[in-house]
């Protein structure tokens, strides 16, 4: 069998890409198995060290923060709840608003769509003060609701769902109507199962988006109870040395590695649906 040059080239590019993605993760993992002194002296480590159990034990059991109460696990859980809430609500709300935009002929459907679309230009960071004002007036600071609510609308997801719904043939709706399906049933029995793949993909993106939020939780939370992973990365595992707070680098690497687990689990779990949807061409 002859292997074409272009194939070899494609593989080289792919392998380079994979290395580019994997090396930083490996570096973090390898470094998380050494002690801080080694890392500070010699930089990040490629090889494995002997501090793995110690570092990971520290991270999982240490209680940090001013109150010495926050644990890494608690922060993972907070972030997980926040990301789950954001992703779930984003998917539900965008799917439903796209449904309204595509299937209900009302006045100004198109301008409304563009209005939604324009909000892409105004991410949370831009409107963070008004958002904070609203949430705090509602008394939602230091709560999961407050963490999630301002982030649940998504122009991107609405756009993708809209484009997908537009590819579904009209006869399907007409046929369903004659079969006695009302608008609600059509959404649940047809659009949702047909867009399984889309939903899985959107959920993954939105979960990662929610999980990696930094600025919003930082502003939103004054109680350590609601600290999230990315905030924790900055705040915990410091050490006082002659009055200066020094980072405990080794533990931080362990923390980074552990913090990757929840999103990875989500991807792994949903990938099954994702790929299944891709293989079965159902349309």
């Amino acid at each position: 069998m002859k292997i074409k040059f272009s194939q070899i080239l494609a593989h080289i590019v792919l392998i380079l890409g994979v290395l580019l993605m994997v090396i930083p993760i490996w570096l973090s993992f390898a470094s998380s198995t050494h002690d801080t002194v080694t890392i500070l002296k010699e930089g990040m480590q490629f090889g494995l060290g002997d501090q793995l159990t110690r570092n990971y034990n520290e991270v999982l059991n240490e209680k940090g923060g001013w109150s010495e109460e926050v644990t890494a696990a608690k922060m993972f859980i907070n972030s997980f709840i926040m990301a789950l809430g954001i992703a779930t609500l984003k998917v539900i709300i965008s799917a439903m608003s796209a449904y309204a935009l595509v299937y209900f002929r009302f006045k100004f459907a198109v301008p409304i769509f563009w209005l939604i679309f324009i909000t892409l230009l105004v991410p949370l960071e831009v409107r963070i003060f008004p958002s904070y004002k609203i949430v705090s007036d509602l008394g939602l600071t230091n709560s999961y609701t407050g963490l999630v609510l301002p982030l649940v609308a998504s122009a991107t997801a609405t756009f993708f769902f809209r484009q997908f719904y537009k590819t579904i043939p009209d006869e399907l709706l007409e046929s369903a109507k004659l079969d006695g399906a009302n608008s609600w049933r059509f959404f649940i029995d047809f659009l949702v199962p047909l867009s399984k793949t889309m939903i899985a993909a959107m959920f993954i993106f939105m979960f990662v988006y929610g999980y990696s939020q930094y600025l919003w939780p930082l502003i939103m939370t004054t109680s350590e109870e609601y600290w999230t992973v990315v905030m924790g990365m900055k705040i915990i595992f410091t050490e006082s040395y002659e009055g200066v707070a020094l980072p405990r680098t080794a533990e931080r690497f362990a923390y980074i590695i552990l913090s990757m687990i929840p999103p990875v689990l989500v991807v792994v779990f949903l990938q099954k649906w994702f790929i299944k949807g891709l293989i079965q061409t159902e349309k």
């Binding site: 006869e171 046929s175 004659l178 006695g180 009302n182 047909l194």
Partner: peptide, 17 residues
């Protein structure tokens, strides 16, 4: 949905899922 009529379409419009 309340007319109690059934229709067969040119492209059948079967429910793919």
């Amino acid at each position: 949905s309340d007319r109690d009529v059934a229709m067969v379409f040119q492209n059948y419009a079967l429910y793919p899922h």
